[in-house]
Amino acid sequence: MTLNDTITPDGEHVPAVRVPHARRMSRLLPGRIDQLAPVIMLVVLTAAFSMLNDQFMTADNWRTIANQAAIPMVLAVGLTFVILTGSIDLSAEGVMASTSICVSLMLANSLNSNDLGLVAVAGGIAIGAVFGLVNGLLYTRLRLPSLIVTLGTWFIGLGIASYVFPDQQPVVRDRSFRSWALGEWFGVSRLVTIAVLVVVAGAVLLRYTRIGRHVYGIGGAEDLMRLAGIRVDTYKTLAFVIAGALAGLAGLMATAQLGVGNANAGADRLFPALSAVVLGGTHLAGGRGGVLQSVLGVLVLVVLGNGMILSGVGPYVQQAVVGAVIIVAVVATGWGARDRLRVVK
């Protein structure tokens, strides 16, 4: 990157050196295609599945979809913050495992006499935030790639969960805690309300606050942000703390659903959430995208899974289809932005 490079208002980084190329036109003309793509996918999938199956377009099924989307959405919002800065956070599954075990032992449970209620809930989110803080500090202070740091804390989180895990699985006996998953508001699980609040808070934070502007700025051109005197490391760490706290919250939500403290509470949650963020149109290189895009990405994945189940597609084929869809979607949306000298790692 050189000083002659420019940053567009979208935070897209445009290298100064570029061979003139016909394809540049396609970048200028539609412009918003990569933001419209997830909407188009969602509409097409919904239309296709409602034609294939009578049960798809029912209120009951949309309630199911909303319930299934709640936890992935919370994870995806947190990941969006980190990915917008251009980093990555792989630790979510470990964080969820740790929170699930620790919180179930702090709430009224089958194994000890604790009954901390809301304190336990706050504790769960705090555990996640501490994981995020550790990630952020290791990443910014030791100057290690975030991929490696969070790979390490993923393992550490799983390890802490199995270390704290008692001989038996703790069964959560706190009724008001469980009612968050079992009780309903507006016809759907209360977890959906939590997810919506998280999405709104995330979107507001990114759109209207200094934190949000700096997160986009760091993803767009970190070195320029540094030269401008912005405390880049602080904001990077903050992004990890947000992601960690939300992974902790997701761990709480999973525990409320399962009713037990489970070291597998986060199992197979990370890659779908990452896929959703990317499908939504947030760039892994940072600087472009947002929370609302990630919401669309989550919905595309959940609708795809739900529709295939209703159409009688086996779960294994489903996994393969989702993998293929991710590749095709990202190739299709990025096709117009190709450029001979574009560097994509």
Partner: peptide, 16 residues
Amino acid sequence: AQVPSFIVTLGALGLY
């Protein structure tokens, strides 16, 4: 297609 390897191989992971 100039898509990050992280994503293509994440998709391939699901596919495989």
